[in-house]
Nucleic acid binder design. Sequence first.
DNA 1: CATGAATGAGTATTCATTCAT
DNA 2: AATGAATGAATACTCATTCAT
Lengths: 220, 220, 220, 220
Amino acid sequence: MNMVRNMDQETPTTARSGLENYRRRVSATKRRSILDAAREEFQGNGFTHAAMAEIARKADVSTATLYKHFNSKEELFAAVVAEAYSSLELNADAIGDAATVEEALATLADNYLKVQFDQGLNDLMRAVISEVSGLPEVGREFYEMSIKRRHDELSGLFDRLIQRGMLKPHDTSMSAHEVAGMLKESLIWPALFDPSFKLPDSKDKIISSAVATFVARYGA
Amino acid sequence: MNMVRNMDQETPTTARSGLENYRRRVSATKRRSILDAAREEFQGNGFTHAAMAEIARKADVSTATLYKHFNSKEELFAAVVAEAYSSLELNADAIGDAATVEEALATLADNYLKVQFDQGLNDLMRAVISEVSGLPEVGREFYEMSIKRRHDELSGLFDRLIQRGMLKPHDTSMSAHEVAGMLKESLIWPALFDPSFKLPDSKDKIISSAVATFVARYGA
Amino acid sequence: MNMVRNMDQETPTTARSGLENYRRRVSATKRRSILDAAREEFQGNGFTHAAMAEIARKADVSTATLYKHFNSKEELFAAVVAEAYSSLELNADAIGDAATVEEALATLADNYLKVQFDQGLNDLMRAVISEVSGLPEVGREFYEMSIKRRHDELSGLFDRLIQRGMLKPHDTSMSAHEVAGMLKESLIWPALFDPSFKLPDSKDKIISSAVATFVARYGA
Amino acid sequence: MNMVRNMDQETPTTARSGLENYRRRVSATKRRSILDAAREEFQGNGFTHAAMAEIARKADVSTATLYKHFNSKEELFAAVVAEAYSSLELNADAIGDAATVEEALATLADNYLKVQFDQGLNDLMRAVISEVSGLPEVGREFYEMSIKRRHDELSGLFDRLIQRGMLKPHDTSMSAHEVAGMLKESLIWPALFDPSFKLPDSKDKIISSAVATFVARYGA
DNA sequence: CATGAATGAGTATTCATTCAT
DNA sequence: AATGAATGAATACTCATTCAT
């Protein structure tokens, strides 16, 4: 049945005219390179200082082509931001079977920080913050889709841990904010003000301490 | 008394002419109105979208006069930012005699949030973050002088509370980060992405919970 | 009957294949829809603001097909304009048997105005005038083929009326200009400056007066 | 008393600071050269094809200066058009004492045509017509201020001629339209479609005939 | 010393036309 | 023969900064 479904999807593709297929592929490729170039520009220069012409140059397309794919600079930026957070992999489930609360939280924190720093999300976050007055929608959506989403994931994890008797019953939305805040204060906040900020060696110690503080209050 | 005040101003360069004095006063007044106008513009529109011409207009001076006082937009911005954090009043001492740790922390948090929201520091913070790529110095200095400075004040308070036996001995720099982070996550972070964000009604509950979590781990 | 129609089309190049025939018909259909779409666009937006892409969209063809039929925007515009005036039906003859000069002229004027307003010729005329600097040929040709052609028709009518003794012998080219000008001043000229201009209620009065003035000088 | 009044006006001017005066002069000069350059461009290329950069170049100013004087291309165009028709000198009065109606009308027509052709008003008129869809206000205002204004002047003259018994009492608005239309049909209308159209040698004959037709109906 | 007019470098966006399939 | 994605050249407008008076 799986095969059949696959065939259902693939048959029309192969049956499609070569021209259509070719165009689809070329178009997708260009769109991809535009998004990559745009992300690089926006992360490096922020929204305002990123130039459409430079994005086009980096993507190796004309500005007109760029505008065929995205109707405006705002729309392109929104697409870049949306793609950034839609690619975030939630992995609270994956670590749900950790032996201890401490282990689970530390792993989750590690994953989160890895993604945040490796994918340049701090740079993108600064770019979004820059345009909060001009593009309030993008700001609000970014907050909802990345920050709030991870918060919900975290409080969901806590709810499950309560059910398993690994945590005291409590307001998990509050506690999720608290543990996230403890980590961000030392590890994300500085990155907002210093583009060269890297994860410090003390990272693990900071995580351990935050987890310990969390457990001191909410541990079973 | 009048003399005393005059002497305060004139002593440095003795026997200044009345004209010189007048000019000095006029100049200081203009500088003041420029800084006020600039702060208003930068908080309202961010660095990039603030216009020097508009600042000059609001300050009721010509653009040339504006440039006599500040050599560039960057320099003016830096001056506004510096003034903003240098006017922050630290008040950890004032509440040092609180009866309980909880009371002391809650009062401190209240003061901090009041200043942050009433003086539009969130707006200014967004402006600084916006220009971190272009003006890294301003970003770093802002972090040092406002965020780090408040952090040092807080850990200093904790040190004193430890000495009085009201807190367990511990790494107070770490704990200061943690309690600050817990508050910011709910009460400052959203303001970064939504300029219309106001302190929520749940503010006191959030403060209480953060303090309780702090005390659960670090309380004596 | 079907054969007859086919023969009408096929006779010129005998023994054409069915495929060729089909293509010819399709091509003619497309050309037709392109011209219709183009006229709509040009009348609505003028030459410069009409967009080739929009014309293609309205005609339901690709831009490439559009360019197969017409080598440039200018050529397409010229074709639209040429078609517009070639479809003008002269009808001076038809009213040649009117009882009085007054009646003949009033009928002719009525017909002329009806066509001009109903077929959107005022809009097209504005479009032509707009491009007179860029496309002088189109302007001159439009003038020759529509304005001058109607003028010739009119002076021809006057010549016949002179022969019948219904008008004094005179320079009919001059008088044709005069009567046309009298009507246009009130009924066409305003439309050049106001696209929403409609024929006023006083239209008949204006026609009568112009005719009366004409007759006062040139009547037998 | 005349002298005193002059002094009243000049004193403040001379008392004005040299700087202010200098700037006023320079600014007026630049504005003048911008308007001249713009008129040349608009007459030559129409509104859409006139380029702000080219106008700036011809006026020997930067585009920014150009925008200091006129907020937009539309506004600049409107200013050019307004200046063109506000400089039209009505001179029906001046010829009010002509011996005969014929003489008065012929003189008036001559003046009108002279201005229209010498000042390039036909070119400007084409430019206005081009933008009637985009800038309806400019179109309507142009019609009101130039065409309608001259029409009112003409019918006013006719009213006075009726009072003097030189014309039959009649609807002078109608007759003004008629005589204007007779002239325009031969002498202005062709210029709308041919930028190189010049006043023909037959000009005087055309004027005479139009006047004669007018007098045939409305003469006393 | 103050002025504000002038600048030049910069940017987002559009559109007639072409070209690989 | 038909497609529509891609192009490049063009253009209105902005703004930090300077300069002649």
